[in-house]
């Protein structure tokens, strides 16, 4: 664990110095947790809007208050949008961490030290997951503050935090980060090109876009049961991915099977 922390400390400094990693994270964060909630500011009374009312009654039933339903619907969208952040951060950090190690040809001297390969893997995983978790939580908090201020001023309600928010921020978000991290680490071992390694991470994010699309199209509405089901499925995948990553990080595997520059 001590050695994993040493790796984490060194790598996190490199992440902070690497603009190509944190610039897109900053842009997406500002967009999702500050600009998107501002859309609520411009939301007017939709009870006159026939199309909107039809959509609301389809999703929530006809008995609910239209304004409250609309805010709830937008909040669900924002939460899903925000799940892109814990997915995006590891897809940028994890490949960079491995590919830069390959480029600098430091893997062999590092493996010649008494470090355990599990510590190396843990260090790399922490470098990716810890910032992803912290930045995601920060975004969830900023989003909550913004939405509550705007909703209270306009409609007198405080929609967040709710149970969906708690599950998304504290269970789904770290699980997504873990999955993207492990897949990115495994894929990075097979390539020497940082862009293609980061590309695979972006490809894994596609299901999240699909959820957003389906919700906007009115096919389903995210609720606590869907969230818990999603969490259960993703958590079930985690041990398999962990096993695959541990296998990938075997000393001999790294030196003889990883694609090197």
């Amino acid at each position: 664990m001590k050695n994993a922390l040493k790796i984490f400390k060194k790598e996190i400094k490199e992440v902070i110095r690497n603009k190509s990693i944190w610039a897109p994270i900053l842009i997406i964060s500002v967009m999702f947790s500050i600009f998107l909630p501002l859309a609520l500011m411009f939301a007017g009374d939709i009870s006159e809007d026939v199309e909107a009312m039809e959509f609301i009654s389809k999703m929530f039933g006809s008995s609910v208050d239209a304004q409250e339903a609309m805010i709830n619907f937008m909040v669900k969208q924002f939460i899903i949008f925000l799940l892109l952040i814990p997915a995006m951060i590891p897809s940028l950090i994890a490949p960079a961490s491995i590919i830069l190690e390959k480029e600098s040809k430091t893997l062999e001297p590092l493996l010649a030290t008494p470090i355990k390969t599990k510590e190396l893997m843990l260090g790399k995983t922490m470098t990716s997951i810890i910032p992803a978790f912290l930045i995601s939580i920060l975004n969830f908090i900023i989003l909550t503050i913004n939405i509550d201020i705007i909703s209270y001023l306009k409609f007198g309600i405080l929609p967040l935090p709710n149970l969906e928010w708690v599950i998304s921020a504290f269970i789904l978000s770290p699980v997504i980060s873990f999955i993207i991290t492990t897949i990115s680490l495994v894929f990075s071992s097979k390539t020497t090109d940082i862009r293609s390694a980061q590309g695979i991470g972006s490809a894994i994010i596609i299901p999240i876009y699909a959820v957003i699309g389906l919700q906007i199209a009115g096919f389903f509405l995210l609720n606590i049961y869907y969230l818990l089901l999603g969490c259960a499925i993703l958590i079930a995948i985690c041990p398999l991915l962990l096993k695959l990553t541990i296998k990938t990080f075997d000393r001999e595997n790294i030196l003889t099977k990883w694609k090197m520059k």
């Binding site: 600098s104 040809k105 430091t106 062999e108 001297p109 010649a112 030290t113």
Partner: peptide, 29 residues
């Protein structure tokens, strides 16, 4: 591993760390 030292054929160093930083990092293990 604690009693051997190795200079590999292509001895890479962390380019964005100082000479001191590189040695301190590896010595830490």
């Amino acid at each position: 591993r604690s009693i051997i030292g190795i200079l590999t054929e292509t001895p890479g160093m962390y380019e964005k760390l100082s000479a001191y930083g590189n040695l301190k990092y590896f010595a830490g293990f």
